[in-house]
């Protein structure tokens, strides 16, 4: 087992390095490098000044060297400065991380809590109306474009009914603390959570239902019944435990996508999380921020994928006890 984990960690690190390099190189290709911007607003700049500035920013070095410098800096903890906000990157990242985690964990937790029971019941009542409707709704949820759904919600709840804010993270200028602050946060987080939850739920319902249906068809379920066990026990002890294996894997992977998946939702609701930061910083060419935000996102995904694989091996004795 440890062998497996170490090999995966190694593999993951390689992938992370490659991706960080590729993203670095691509971002270097983006229009709007700071010296060029200066040149455009100040056409009378002299060539020597341009060269001097480029050397200062290290922009005259080839991509590999620049990447290496960046890598060593970052690993030392020097994450650089944000061009847009004019503060160290570390100042920005913290809050954003908290915001996104708040949004995502709430949504994922809710999605799981609601979807698993629905999926199980739908599977047990395979072929009935409940199953049909559950499956249909899950389908709809998966096909729903999240940005449109968000817009619709804003239209209904923010414009027409005027009960929830149309966007933002907290009320600007508010200095509420403790419970009041939490309540304020809740107002802003509600609609984004709904959007996120619905799309996740759809996936979980389908997976749970699928897994349960598959499991209930197995021979060992027949054996369990032949042993005279109550149906409830058959379902929850024997069936569900087996269906759990793929479900946990899916959930871990979803957890990994927490930053990437939030990008669109956060953009629609102007929610100041890591997702929005990734987008804004890449588009705004805020280089240092973009690299940090982007690579955190990737790292999270890769890490949670590893967790998913490990938990799969952990939950399935056929793999754990080789």
């Amino acid at each position: 087992m440890w062998n497996f984990i170490i090999r995966r960690l190694f593999f993951t690190t390689i992938v992370l390095l490659i991706i960080s390099f590729v993203s670095f190189a691509l971002m270097a290709l983006m229009p709007g490098d700071p010296v060029e911007e200066l040149m455009m607003s100040n056409p009378s700049m002299r060539a020597e000044d341009v060269a001097r500035l480029k050397a200062l920013y290290g922009l005259d070095l080839p991509v590999y060297e620049r990447y290496w410098n960046w890598l060593t800096d970052t690993l030392r903890g020097d994450l650089g400065y944000s061009r847009t906000y004019k503060v160290p990157v570390t100042d920005i990242i913290g809050d954003r991380l908290i915001n996104t985690f708040l949004l995502s964990f709430t949504a994922l937790g809710l999605a799981l809590l609601l979807a698993v029971p629905i999926g199980v019941i739908a599977a047990l009542r395979n072929g009935t109306k409940f199953d049909y409707i559950a499956n249909l709704l899950a389908f709809a949820g998966q096909s729903l474009p999240p940005f449109w759904f968000g817009i619709m919600l804003i239209m209904i709840f923010a414009e027409w009914l005027q009960v929830l804010p149309a966007g933002g993270t907290t009320t600007i200028g508010s200095d509420a603390t403790g419970l009041a602050a939490l309540a304020d946060r809740l107002k802003y987080i509600t609609l984004p959570v709904v959007v996120f939850t619905v799309s996740q739920m759809a996936v979980y319902v389908r997976y749970t239902r699928g897994a349960m249906i598959e499991v209930m068809r197995q021979d060992y379920i027949r054996t369990a019944r032949a042993k005279g066990l109550a149906e409830k026990r058959v379902v929850f002890v024997h069936a569900f435990r087996n269906a759990l294996i793929p479900l946990v894997t899916i959930f871990a992977i979803a957890l990994g996508n927490v930053f990437g998946g939030a990008i669109i939702t956060e953009q629609v609701f102007a929610y100041q999380g890591v997702g929005k930061l990734v987008f804004d910083s890449i588009i705004g060419n805020d280089f240092r921020v973009a690299m940090v935000a982007f690579n955190i996102t990737i790292a999270m995904v890769l890490f949670m994928n590893l967790v998913a694989d490990v938990s799969y091996a952990f939950l399935d004795p056929r793999i754990a006890y080789k």
Partner: peptide, 22 residues
């Protein structure tokens, strides 16, 4: 249910799939 596994028992053809793997 009280009779199954108790008064009447059954064994099946494929023992690998008949036992719960987890």
């Amino acid at each position: 249910e009280a009779i199954r596994g108790n008064g009447i028992a059954m064994i099946f053809q494929e023992p690998m799939t008949a036992l719960n793997p987890v």
